[in-house]
Amino acid sequence: MFLSVRLPVLACLGAVLVLGAAAPAQAQKAETPVLVTSCGQSPGPIKLTVYMKRLQIAHDLKTDATAKDLGAKPYKTLIVVTGSSLKGMGAAGVSIDDEVKRVGALIDEARKKGITIVGAHVEGMERRAKSAAPGDNSDEISIDAVCPKSNFLIVRKDGDEDGRFTTLSKKHNIPVVFFQKNTEIQDVLKNVFGS
C-alpha cells in the first residue's frame, strides 16, 4: 500500500525533474503539407523525410528553400533542420551567413502566412560545435538562427547533452519534443501529424 501510493508520486517527481527544465512538450501538433529545409546544409533533413515518406506525410524537401517557395503550395508547416555541414555548404556554394540570411527570410515569411515553424536537431552531438573544425561554430549559429523563432522543437536527446536545447526552450518558452533513438522519429512524426 505504501509503495503503491509512493511510486506514482516518485515517478511524477522524476518526470518533473527530467522534463521540468523545458517548456511543456505534450501534444505538439502540426498540419500538412510540410516544407522541410536545412539551415547549414547538413544531411539531417533526410532523417525526417525518409520517415515522412514511409508514413505518407505530404511534404517537400528543399534544402535551399526561400521565402518564394512558400507560395508554391499551401504549406501549413515549415520544418527547419539545424546543424551544419562544411562539406554540404561547400558543395552548395554557401556560407553559414548565407544560410542564416536565407532561413531568416523564410521564417519571417512563414510567420506572415501563419505557417507553423518547427526547429529540429536530429543528429546528436555529432552535429554540434564539438565535431566542427577548430574555431567553427556554424552548428551553433544555425541553432540560434532557427530555434528561438520556432513554435516548437524536435530534438534528439543526445544533442542536448550540454542542456543547450533545454535552455533555449526554457528561455523562449518553446516546447521541445525529445526523442532518444532515431527510429523514434517515426513516432514523433506520427504524434505531430496524426489526427
Binding site: 544531411p43 532523417k47 525518409v50 562539406k87 554540404g88 552535429r127 533513438k181 532515431n182
Partner: peptide, 29 residues
C-alpha cells in the same frame, strides 16, 4: 543513395554500439 545511407546510419546508431553519420557527396567534387 541518400535515403539508403541515412536509414543505415540511423539503424546502426540505434542498434549497435557505435555512431555513424552521413555526408552527401558534393556534386562538383
Amino acid at each position: 543513395g541518400q535515403e539508403l545511407a541515412t536509414m543505415v546510419s540511423m539503424m546502426l546508431t540505434d542498434n549497435e554500439d557505435f555512431k555513424i553519420g552521413t555526408e552527401f557527396s558534393p556534386l562538383t567534387l
